[in-house]
């Protein structure tokens, strides 16, 4: 396992250096986007209002607080922001990578074969931020640079966040097509069979 410190825009060269199980701390710009953003870009074919080239898409629906006074230009602060289930975006992520030039996906849980292929084709990676650790993540967001598509609602909008040493981001899919969580699931499946086998006879309350 190696530890990397990257700054956006991230290059193909950077992405090539990392493998599943490595850990990244990211500095620069990340943008939140989940179900609705993916739907708009991939299914509705809308031009994303944010340039994502070399940046990270963060599967997250944050709690934001408006900190600007009435009449001032809108300014927001991140109260709590953590990863959401990435698998929900499986259907659209490969196309999203191709359409936007995003290099890093940040979420929780794994993603499937379609995204894995998308990472290979677009030289991108999927990473996992520890789930439920939303205050740690919020404090690594040093500035909210703006918001787009706020009509989708607070959790679904694209929040542009400036981050410093954002992580730990555990690489779960690399640009070589390896998938950490899918590998783990194969292990879990084997151990599950063994566990069910050893339960046999113990739960026979009907006899």
């Amino acid at each position: 396992m190696s530890i990397f410190h990257f700054t956006t825009p991230v290059t193909d060269e950077d992405i090539r250096k990392v493998h599943i199980g490595d850990v990244i701390y990211l500095t620069g710009e990340i943008v939140t986007g989940r179900d609705d953003v993916h739907h708009r870009v991939v299914v509705s074919g809308k031009e994303p209002p944010v340039d994502l080239k070399g940046k990270a898409i963060f599967h997250a629906g944050p709690i934001m607080k408006k900190i600007s006074a009435e009449g001032e230009e809108d300014k927001y602060k991140v109260i709590s922001v953590g990863p959401t289930t990435s698998m929900r975006m499986e259907k659209a992520e490969a196309e999203f990578l191709a359409a936007t030039g995003t290099k890093i996906i940040i979420g929780k849980g794994g993603m499937g074969p379609k995204t894995t292929k998308g990472c290979v084709d677009n030289c991108a990676i999927h990473t996992i931020f520890p789930g439920g650790c939303a205050v740690v993540a919020a404090e690594e967001c040093v500035e909210t640079e703006g918001v787009e598509w706020l009509d989708l609602g607070m959790p679904e909008a694209m929040w542009k966040l400036r981050v410093e040493e954002f992580g730990p981001l555990v690489v779960s899919i690399d640009s070589y097509g390896d998938n950490l969580i899918e590998n783990n699931k194969v292990e879990f499946e084997k151990k599950k069979q063994a566990a069910l086998e050893s339960l046999k006879g113990k739960l026979d309350y009907m006899s």
Partner: peptide, 16 residues
Amino acid sequence: KNMEMADKLGRPSCQD
């Protein structure tokens, strides 16, 4: 760390 920071800053510990 997250539990400690949520307590210190008085924030919801998970965004969901």
